[in-house]
């Protein structure tokens, strides 16, 4: 069959829907980074910087890797927000497309196959993440939180981390009949990850066992990678490890999603 690839048509459908709502979404993509960086980086950062500077031996310089709290927290918030956007885009809209508006069913009545429907939706989520991460970086630069040209790489890192959550969540969402599970995942997984994966304080401060758990979470690797970009230490072996971990998660999630989608939509 000639013409655009099938999955691109599925993406096009999501893009078309987005055209009605993009203004609000772009506005919030810039507004939330401003709010978070002002409150955490500047407001709370003021307390942190003063406290660390007043300690004997100035431990702050080592505690935060030698940077101000604003610079420390910015990559954490970037990746944490990517995770949250990815999760919310991968739960309710999937349920809606399956059950409420039956968007998938409509797509499948055309030459599109389940794989195209899935790929199209995932690409749409990735573009939302690109917008959000790009906006965040621009705002962070304006706040003076960007210290290296390598920071541009934080944009794909935001997308990658988001997708590491998106693909497994999409796989899970396609198995659900009600939205109860979404809130439970949000509260039991997403919120703790957001708070304990090194976004807001170095995980070295956690008790030993918890530290280990934190190091296993995908968000920790995303935060570490984004921080390396924004501080200009990207080219290291550990960066490769972080990226490999996240890529593997995206792949496993996508594989699982292709199975759950087929099971749900082909029945």
């Amino acid at each position: 069959m000639m013409g655009r690839p099938l999955w691109v048509r599925a993406l096009g459908s999501w893009g078309f829907r987005y055209r009605r709502t993009w203004r609000g979404s772009v506005a919030t993509s810039f507004a939330f980074p401003v709010l978070y960086l002002a409150a955490l980086g500047v407001g709370l950062g003021g307390l942190v910087n003063r406290h660390l500077a007043s300690q004997p031996g100035r431990p702050g310089l080592t505690a935060l890797g030698g940077v101000t709290y604003l610079v420390f927290v910015a990559p954490g918030v970037l990746v944490g927000s990517a995770m949250q956007i990815a999760t919310s885009e991968s739960t309710f809209p999937v349920m809606g497309a399956i059950k409420w508006q039956r968007l998938y069913e409509a797509m499948l009545a055309t030459p599109l196959r389940t794989g195209d429907v899935l790929a199209g939706h995932l690409c749409y989520i990735a573009s939302r993440l690109a917008l959000a991460s790009g906006a965040f970086l621009a705002v962070a630069a304006a706040f003076g939180a960007v210290h290296s040209p390598e920071a541009v790489v934080a944009l794909p890192v935001g997308i990658l981390t988001g997708m590491a959550f998106s693909t497994p969540m999409v796989a899970y969402a396609a198995t659900q009949e009600t939205i109860v599970g979404f809130s439970v995942v949000e509260r039991l997984v997403i919120v703790p990850l957001f708070l304990f994966s090194g976004s807001f304080f170095p995980i070295a401060q956690l008790p030993g066992a918890l530290q280990l758990v934190a190091e296993l979470t995908p968000l920790y690797h995303g935060v570490a990678l984004a921080r390396a970009c924004m501080l200009g230490h990207l080219v290291t072996l550990s960066s490769l490890g972080h990226a490999g971990y996240l890529l593997a998660l995206v792949a496993v999630g996508a594989w699982a999603a292709s199975r759950t989608y087929r099971a749900r939509l082909a029945s």
């Binding site: 307390l47 406290h51 007043s54 702050g60 709290y69 807001f200 304080f201 995980i203 401060q205 956690l206």
Partner: peptide
């Protein structure tokens, strides 16, 4: 566990 130590 974490932030409190940074803020004092």
């Amino acid at each position: 566990l974490g932030l409190g130590h940074l803020v004092g």
